[in-house]
């Protein structure tokens, strides 16, 4: 395993709710080496999504330092953070979150609008990504014409099309049947194994977590190290 892609130091995250402070992440420190496929498990409300979002640069810690792909995220402005995300993060959502008025190919192409690639290069990238997820023949389908499993595969294609440093997935199989879920997990494992992508996946499904190389449990904001 290589250098750490993610390193968190004394990260805390608290929310004010109804006048009282609720701490979601408490003094968390850990590193994720490059090339890891990590599953973060834990009960609902334990702070998994919050942790993932802090790593993805779409949420900020209340205190502590977050270094991802060599950049200190907690010190970036919103604009810098957006630029950084476009370059380094591929995000897979539980609810796929495809744009309904765009075809599969157009959805996958969307992140490339932020690059300087030519039209032909973009088309190449899109085709490669969709073939990789096994949807080379569904390029021109709209999301409503696809099954849930297919939609999520488009979601994965969108996450990898710009060749990001890391893929973050928040319950990527949470809305899928067993078979489709297995397909997605197989796909993620392949991306990790064959392309060497660092993947962090949040899940509360033990069978999904099993497919990762490494599992961490989050309980009330504290990451439990395996014995």
């Amino acid at each position: 395993m290589g250098d750490p892609v993610v390193s968190l130091h004394n990260v805390t995250k608290t929310y004010i709710r109804g006048g009282t402070e609720v701490s979601v992440i408490r003094d968390l420190s850990f590193v994720i080496p490059a090339g890891t496929f990590l599953a973060i498990m834990g009960p609902s409300g334990s702070g998994k999504s919050t942790l993932l979002n802090v790593m993805a640069g779409i949420d900020r810690p209340t205190s502590g330092s977050v270094v991802v792909a060599g950049t200190r995220l907690d010190q970036l402005s919103e604009g810098e953070m957006a630029r950084w995300r476009a370059r380094h993060i591929g995000y897979v959502f539980q609810t796929y979150n495809l744009i309904p008025v765009l075809t599969a190919a157009e959805n996958v192409e969307l992140p490339l609008a932020l690059t300087h690639l030519t039209r032909r290069e973009r088309a190449e990238h899109v085709k490669t990504a969709l073939r990789l997820v096994g949807l080379g023949d569904r390029m021109d389908h709209y999301p409503r014409q696809l099954s849930g499993g297919q939609e999520q595969r488009v979601g994965v294609a969108r996450a990898i099309v710009s060749d990001p440093t890391m893929i973050l997935a928040d319950e990527p199989t949470g809305n899928l049947d067993r078979e489709s879920a297995d397909d997605i997990l197989t796909l993620l494992a392949r991306l990790n194994r064959e392309l060497g992508k660092t993947i962090v996946m949040v899940t509360h499904d033990p069978r999904a977590a099993e497919r990762a190389q490494m599992i961490r449990h989050l309980e009330k904001g504290l990451l439990e190290m395996p014995p």
Binding site: I58, G79, A82, R85, A86, R87, Y91, F93, I99, L114
Partner: peptide
């Protein structure tokens, strides 16, 4: 709104 949130996640400013 959600779609704009997704676009922001992708890095759109």
């Amino acid at each position: 709104t959600r779609e704009y949130g997704v676009m922001k996640t992708l890095g759109f400013r």
